[in-house]
């Protein structure tokens, strides 16, 4: 399994990335939505397409919602699962993200167990990791 962690906070990228690596994911990182689009485009050349993107909402340059819309507008990345990982916890924001094409929504702060539960819901837990 492959994951792209998108957050302007290096600390949060490290936290999410470490949990995903513990679950067996190969992880790449991006600091904003535009960088993440670049990682996706560059990854295509080496056939590296993530199974999962974990996406912060509030980021400079291109925010998480804009990234979700950009990915959903590109049929090449139709199979990528998009999960918001954000402090934005109001119902209106969650509905907006899901309507834009996000598959799941995880609110910060979260535990490793909460992230594992979301991965299980999405069918993205690698073999050998208990749900």
């Amino acid at each position: 399994m492959r994951a792209l962690v998108i957050d302007d906070s290096r600390a949060m990228r490290r936290i999410v990335g470490t949990i995903l690596k513990d679950f067996g994911f190969e992880v790449r990182e991006a600091g904003d939505g535009q960088q993440a689009l670049d990682v996706l485009q560059e990854g295509k050349a080496e056939s590296w397409v993530p199974d999962l993107c974990c996406i912060d909402w509030n980021m400079p340059v291109m925010d998480g919602l804009q990234f979700v819309m950009a990915v959903r507008a590109n049929p090449e990345f139709r199979q990528v699962t998009l999960m918001m990982v954000t402090t934005e916890s109001e119902t209106g924001q969650i509905v907006k993200a899901l309507a834009a094409g996000a598959h799941e929504y995880l609110i910060k702060p979260f535990t490793a167990d909460a992230l594992r539960d979301k991965l299980a819901l999405l069918g993205l837990l690698p073999e050998g990791v208990s749900a």
Partner: peptide, 29 residues
């Protein structure tokens, strides 16, 4: 690292405070 981690702590606290305030609000960086 310190600026980033302390900033993220403020960000997560701020996001949770925002969620309990009335009306629709926006969170800065």
């Amino acid at each position: 690292d310190v600026a980033d981690a302390l900033g993220e702590l403020a960000n997560v606290l701020g996001g949770n405070v925002k969620s309990v305030l009335p009306g629709e609000s926006r969170l800065g960086l």
